[in-house]
Computed example of a mutant assay.
Amino acid sequence: MTDQHNPKTDAEPQSNTEKDPEDWVSGDEPMTGAQGSYLKTLSEQAHEPGAFAEDLSKAEASKRIDALKSKLKL
């Protein structure tokens, strides 16, 4: 039996799960429905309606979500 790496027992499970949105393979694809909904909610809560746009990419939506979460201290 060969010893294989098990990510479930990795001491640092977050080590490769967070990438810069600029490095995402699918970052240029349209944002997901979940991203759009969350971004819309956050933009309303932050009183920044301009932060939401329907034509954002996944990467851009992620960046805006992170910025609004930071502003709202979430």
Rank of each mutant, 00 (worst) to 15 (best):
M1R: 14
M1F: 11
T2N: 11
D3C: 09
D3F: 13
D3V: 12
D3N: 14
Q4R: 15
Q4C: 10
Q4D: 11
N6L: 07
N6G: 07
P7G: 04
P7W: 03
A11H: 10
A11I: 09
A11W: 07
E12V: 07
E12F: 11
P13G: 02
P13L: 01
P13V: 01
P13A: 01
Q14A: 13
S15K: 14
T17S: 08
T17M: 04
E18L: 13
E18P: 04
K19P: 01
K19S: 03
D20K: 13
D20M: 04
D20Y: 04
D20S: 14
P21R: 02
P21H: 00
E22N: 14
D23T: 04
W24P: 05
W24A: 04
W24I: 06
S26K: 13
S26W: 04
D28W: 05
D28Q: 13
D28F: 06
E29K: 15
E29M: 15
E29I: 11
E29R: 15
P30W: 01
P30L: 03
G33W: 01
G33Y: 05
A34M: 12
A34S: 14
Q35Y: 06
Q35G: 09
G36Q: 09
G36H: 04
S37D: 08
Y38G: 02
Y38D: 06
L39G: 05
L39C: 07
L39D: 00
L42R: 02
L42T: 03
S43A: 15
E44V: 08
E44R: 13
E44Y: 05
Q45W: 08
A46N: 10
H47I: 03
H47N: 15
H47L: 07
E48T: 13
E48N: 14
E48G: 08
P49R: 08
P49W: 05
G50C: 09
G50A: 12
A51Y: 12
F52T: 07
F52C: 07
E54M: 08
E54D: 14
E54R: 14
D55R: 12
A59N: 09
E60S: 13
E60L: 13
A61M: 02
S62M: 04
K63G: 02
K63E: 02
R64I: 05
A67E: 01
A67R: 03
L68E: 00
L68F: 00
L68C: 00
L68K: 02
K69C: 02
S70G: 12
K71Y: 02
K71C: 00
L72Q: 09
L72R: 09
K73I: 02
K73C: 01
L74C: 03
L74R: 12
